[in-house]
């Protein structure tokens, strides 16, 4: 595993204009404030933080769904700034995304085979037979059957759908895969299967993951590096063991402490703290 970064992010900002209404003036909201990080080839960066801290905004910028307001993103040496240069097929093939909700991320009117072939159809000149072979190959790789090729998404369970979504994302053999809370909509046993699948795929294809999550146990299992975000800013960034073993920022400590604790002693302590306040 070479240590050259495949993803370089420098001073990334994203601001949203909030239109003024009748009674309030226009303002701006900065969702991501000056984020810097590198991700090395074949490793996993976990992005952790509470709802609304800018994780998903970051994901949307990395996958070229939204443009950044300022700052630079560089994927595999290719600078990405879609508001200036637009998106080329080259850029498409480098980054793909897996969404949180497997029930919304597959087109209900599209058969699985076509779901998988669509990226190839749009970005390459591959003949139909070859595309189909690749799709069948991929189905097997993510643990599905070739018979599933002609079925509709509603015939699958949540875990199977997420496998399909992952298969679609890696059809183009992207350098970087952004996983936006890919297991938080699944039940626990299925979560484990999907995480194992992701790990296997990473080993096999040398994929690089940016893994967005709020589930710390999942992060501990998968991540090489951890980045904690809080209100759009990075408050902690380091290897998994550094962050988990010795959290520096107060928010990170709170976050780790927020893991539910149901023994009587901790409940008493919580009530006492509440009464004291």
């Amino acid at each position: 595993m070479s240590q050259q970064p495949i993803l370089k992010v420098r001073d990334l900002y994203r601001t949203y204009e909030i239109k003024g209404g009748l009674f309030r003036p226009a303002s701006t909201l900065t969702a991501v404030k000056g984020v810097n990080f590198d991700v090395e080839r074949g490793t996993t960066l976990a992005v952790v933080g509470e709802s609304g801290c800018g994780k998903s905004t970051l994901a949307r910028m990395l996958t070229m769904i939204d443009a950044q307001s300022s700052g630079t993103i560089e994927v595999d040496g290719l600078p990405i700034d879609i508001s200036k240069t637009g998106i080329s097929k080259d850029m498409r093939q480098k980054v793909q995304i897996v969404f949180q909700n497997p029930y919304g991320s597959l087109n209900p009117r599209q058969k699985i085979g076509h779901v998988l072939e669509e990226p190839l159809l749009l970005n390459t000149n591959m003949p139909a037979a070859e595309r189909r072979d690749l799709a069948l190959d991929m189905l097997q790789k993510v643990g599905l059957q070739p018979e599933h090729y002609g079925r509709y998404p509603h015939m699958f369970s949540g875990g199977q759908r997420q496998r399909i979504a992952i298969a679609r994302a890696i059809m183009m053999k992207p350098k970087l895969l952004v996983l936006d809370e890919p297991v938080s909509a699944l039940d626990l046993s299925v979560q484990a299967q999907i995480l194992n699948l992701l790990k296997d795929l990473q080993d096999e294809m040398g994929l690089t993951y940016v893994f967005i999550s709020h589930d710390l146990s999942v992060v501990r299992y998968l991540a090489d590096k951890v980045m904690v975000m809080y209100f759009g800013e990075v408050v902690e960034y380091g290897t998994r063991d550094e962050v988990f073993g010795n959290p520096q920022h107060s928010y990170t400590k709170t976050l780790f402490a927020a893991t539910p604790n149901a023994d009587v002693e901790s409940i008493r302590k919580r009530i006492a703290a509440k009464n004291a306040a």
Binding site: T63, M64, I65, I87, K89, R92, V95, Q96, I97, F99, N101, G104, S105, L106, N107, P108, Q110, E118, P119, L122, N123, A165, R168, M172
Partner: peptide
């Protein structure tokens, strides 16, 4: 705004498609 539309856009689908 649904995810599958965004996914198709990430996959490279143009406006017409």
């Amino acid at each position: 705004g649904r995810d599958y539309v965004v996914a198709a856009r990430v996959a490279g689908a143009g406006h017409m498609r």
